[in-house]
Amino acid sequence: MITHPTAQELVAGVAQWLPVDGSASVFGLRVARNALEIAARDMALSPAADARAVVRMRALLGRDGTRVELDAALVEAIRSGTIAPDDPALVAHLKAAALDTIAIDQPKYAHTLG
C-alpha cells in the first residue's frame, strides 16, 4: 500500500544508511528500526488492504481493474464530477483507505480514528 517509498526502498535505504562501524547513534538506530517496522507492516498488511480497496472502488466505479488503474479512474471520476466529493460510498472508501494506511504507518493512532 505504501507507494513512496516502497517497503523495498525503505529496507534498502536503511541498509545503505546504517554505518557498519558501530557508530550509529541511539536516535539513528530508532529511526532505522521504525523504518524497518513500517516496511514489515506494509508487506504484511498491504495485500489485504489493496484487495479491500479494489472491491470498494469496483463498486464505486462500476468497472474492473487493478488497484493502480482503479485509483486513477477514481481520481478522474472525482475531478470530472462523475462522483461527488460527498458521496457516502466515496467517503466510506476514503475513510477505510486512510485507516488501512494508518494501520501501516502509525498503528498506535489507528484506534483513535476507527
Rank of each mutant, 00 (worst) to 15 (best):
I2M: 14
P5S: 05
A7P: 05
A7V: 03
E9G: 00
L10P: 02
L10H: 02
V11L: 15
V11W: 03
V14E: 08
A15V: 13
W17D: 10
L18T: 14
G22A: 11
A24K: 01
A24H: 00
S25T: 15
V26Q: 11
F27Y: 09
F27A: 13
F27M: 08
G28C: 07
G28F: 11
L29Y: 00
L29E: 11
V31F: 11
V31H: 00
A32Y: 05
N34Q: 15
L36Y: 06
I38W: 05
A40Q: 14
D42L: 00
D42N: 10
A49E: 06
R52E: 14
R56S: 14
R58L: 04
R58G: 00
A59P: 00
L61V: 01
G62H: 03
T66R: 08
T66E: 09
E69H: 03
A72K: 11
V75A: 11
E76R: 11
A77Q: 01
I78M: 10
S80R: 09
T82N: 08
T82C: 01
I83K: 00
D87H: 10
D87T: 05
P88G: 08
A89S: 12
A89W: 03
V91R: 09
A92Y: 06
A92N: 03
H93M: 07
K95L: 13
K95R: 14
A97L: 12
A98Y: 10
L99R: 13
T101S: 13
T101H: 12
T101K: 05
I104W: 02
K108I: 10
Y109L: 15
A110M: 03
T112L: 15
L113W: 14
L113D: 01
